[in-house]
Every structure is written in C-alpha cells, then in structure tokens.
Amino acid sequence: MWAFVIRRLIYMIPTVFIISLVSFIIIELPPGDYMTTLMASMAAEGGEMGQEEIEALRRIYGLDQPVYVRYINWMRNIITRWDFGYSFEWRAPVWDVMGSRLAMTVVISLASLLFSWVIALPTGIYSAVRQYSVGDYIFTFFGFLGLATPNFLLALVVMFLAHRYLGLSVGGLFSEQYQMAPWSLGKVVDLMKHIWIPMIIVGTASSASLLRITRANLLDELRKPYVETARAKGLRMWRVVLKYPVRIALNPFISSIGFVLPQLVSGSVIVGVVLNLPTTGPLLLRALQSQDMYLAGSFTLLLATMTVIGVLISDILLAWIDPRIRYD
C-alpha cells in the first residue's frame, strides 16, 4: 500500500511541474505587462510616468529579466517563502488577496462533492436495481437535464426564481452583518444557511454524471455471476446488492472524483461569478480582465494543484478499497 502511495506521489511531480509551466505561460501570455496597463491608466488620468520611473518599477518587480529567470524566481519564491508574487491591482501580495477566497472555493467544491454523492449513490443504485421502472426513468430524465444545463444557467434560473417568487437575494455566502466579521460560531451558522444554494447548483451536473456512472457500473456488476453465487447462498437480494455489486461499482464511483473535482472547481468559479460569491470566481475574472497576471496565474496554479491533490486522494482511496489495484 505504501509503495503505491509513494509511486503515485512521484507521478504527481511532473504533473504539478506542467501545471506550473502552464500557469506561468498564462501570466506571460498577454502582450505587455502590468506596467503597460498601469501606464495606460495613468495616461488616461493625465498623470504621466517618466520612462525612468517605469524602468525602476520594472526592475523592482523583476519584469526586466528573461522569461526563464522570471519563472524560476516565481517558483523559488513560492516554494521557499509561499510568495506567489504581487497583485498590482490590489497592491498586496497575491496570497493575501486570494487565500480566503481559495478556502471558500474548496469549501463549496467539497460541499458540492458531498451533495452529489448523497444524491447520486442512492438514485444510481435504485435506477440500476429497478431498471426501466418509473423511478429509473425519472432519475434518468433529471440526470440528462442536469448534464445538459450549464452551471451558470442553473444559477441564473435559481436566482430569478428566488427573486421573483421568494423575494430573496441569493447572492453571497454571508449575511451583511457577518460579511466583514471575524470567524465565529455565528458566522459558520450563517455560512451554512447560505452555502446550500451554490452547493446544489454546482453539484447538480456532477450528481447527474455520477448517477449515470453508478447506474451503468451497477448494471454491469448485477449481471456478473458472483451475484448469483451470493444469492444461491441464501442472501437477501438487497443485501447481495449492497454487499457485492455496490461495493465494486463504488470503485469507478470513487475514481470518478478525479474528473468530477475539476468539474466542481470549474463550476464553483462560474457560479461564483453569477451569484457574486466570495470565492475565486469573481476575483479571477476581474484579475484576467485587468491583466493582474500574477494573481490570475496563481489562481490557475493553485486551483489545478488542488484538483491534482484531490485526484491523488481519490486514487489512494481507490487502492485502499480495491485490493486488485494495490497489488498491481
């Protein structure tokens, strides 16, 4: 088992390396740098900056170095000092700006993952065991619908319905009095009151795909001879289903975390924009629009690294639950 974990950890290294490269490319992609943007906005306000001043600023932020040096510096600062660079727009270190928002993204993604499990597992099992029943058709219909509806559209519709019929504003994660308040029990309770809407919106699409995966896998498993063996022993049908096929169908279910997690993070970003949540979404969008590239690049870097870690955890879980994999 440990050998497996270590091997997977080693596999992660190149992945994270490529992620960091891609994120850095994103930082470097826009023509010009933040100084260009800054100059343009200064010029618009009438206060022009001297060429020397600009060069001085460039030197301070290392913008005059060659590309690979900038990449190495960026990575070195992250690894040694947890320093992701400087957000020119917020005039603060990137980590200070995005730390709490990243945490909220993680919270929402995990809550949505939990939600999709709670929804997908029972409905998937039911749909498979009672294939072609009314319930199966209903679940399958909602499954398809959930897959076909883009996250943001669902968010819009929910927002519209809540506004129109309940007179509620569903945006945000906190009530006004807690927005700026430090963490307290009251704030956590307040978060619980608000988080379920984004949780459901973000989790719907993944619930739908997990439902379909569970159903398909379970249908395969139910036809396997070992189910008959177990029934021939005298076990009750539902016990057989829960002990054997569900157990095996769980494997792909768990491994699917690997692709569901990026989906959820993606979803929480875009839903965050629509519902104006204090997550990475709105900030990332804004950073991209204003070419605050260290912030934008660090977001991509961390969001992607987080999903990779999530996938790693799901792989380890999988190996733990399925003996065939860990002996492989």
């Binding site: 994103i26 989906q263 993606s266 970003v269 991509t300 969001l303």
Partner: peptide, 18 residues
C-alpha cells in the same frame, strides 16, 4: 492526466482573456 486535472473553466478563462 495533467490536462484533465485542470479545472477547465479557469483555464479557458485565462486563455480566452489573453
């Protein structure tokens, strides 16, 4: 594996913004 582990929306956003 690397490409699939990227959350697509942020990546698309970053690329599209450029």
């Amino acid at each position: 594996e690397t490409v699939t582990s990227f959350p697509t929306i942020p990546l698309w956003m970053a690329l599209a913004a450029s």
